[in-house]
Design a protein around this nucleic acid. Structure first.
Lengths: 154, 154
DNA sequence: TTCTCATGTAACTTTATATGTTGCGTGAAA
DNA sequence: TTTCACGCAACATATAAAGTTACATGAGAA
């Protein structure tokens, strides 16, 4: 299974948006992430529906943040993406008639459920404001020279 | 990404094998799991290499357990499968130059690492003997009638 | 009004991976 | 020597993320 990087991607985009009050176009965000504008719009659609971001068409249009980063958590973003699968493994069949498989499912299912709960709990503990603050810490630690530092020129 | 069910499948197979000292053919195991004999051989190959099971060719051949179920853990089986990915999500890029992405990776990476560690810890706590015992509990609870109970006739 | 910019969305392609299938070779027992 | 069963390579299928193309829509600029 190819790993799903939408959460990672959308957080990246949001933190960039947090650095400026001006709208940023899908194209600019896509360039920063080395991907396609349509991909950006696609992963942002869920966030727009939840009201976390706003999009404007036409000249001067683009994406802006529409929520308080101090209350938005990674969990909110994850949910807005449609709660994609967290685990790459699962039981072969749910609700099996075979008792052997029931025993296996019970043991694995418990572990899987715990891991998922742990992830969701962690997601719920991290606000976007905290993430942004961490970025600024790294920014200063790196010397604090101008935007070049967090640009994507490679 | 489609979910990986090899661990679930191989445990199912092992518990069936634990119910009899006689060798069981890939074909019989495949029938129990509603899959293909080649798939069974494929997921069993790693366990054979580790010495957890043995395979014999020819008449009366098939698979037998070659290890002590009381010391074999789900973690051992997981490792024998080649330690497949546990999580369906991951960071977009490892070692990014972008500080924003570094901050995102750090936050998500911590959560991911914790969840993986939790799963591996849980896997290490469950022996195949415990799994088998759980099956026998379920078997008795269900009335304990003959093999029909854990057969796969649907 | 007309042109340009930027999003919205559907449809298609690409890529990666688990799973399913076929075919043939090898060794062991009847 | 025939049959059984595994070993394994090669190919096919299914699914989902990611990338791409094309076109419609709406908003501001000229």
């Amino acid at each position: 299974m190819r790993k799903d990087s939408r959460l990672s991607g959308v957080l990246h985009v949001l933190l960039h948006m947090a650095e400026t009050p001006d709208p940023i176009t899908s194209e600019a965000l896509a360039a920063a992430m080395h991907t396609n504008p349509v991909v950006v719009r696609r992963i942002m659609a869920g966030l727009r529906d939840k009201g976390y971001v706003r999009s404007e068409k036409g000249h001067g249009g683009g994406w802006t943040i529409a929520a308080d980063l101090a209350t938005l958590t990674l969990r909110d973003i994850y949910d807005a993406l449609g709660e994609p699968d967290l685990l790459a493994m699962g039981n072969r069949t749910e609700m099996p008639g075979c008792l052997v498989e029931q025993a296996v499912n019970a043991a694995l299912g418990d572990a899987f459920a715990e891991a998922e709960a742990l992830l969701l709990r962690r997601f719920g503990e991290v606000t976007l404001a905290a993430l942004s603050a961490d970025f600024h810490r790294r920014y200063l630690a790196r010397g604090g020279s101008p935007d070049l530092e967090h640009s994507h020129a490679h």
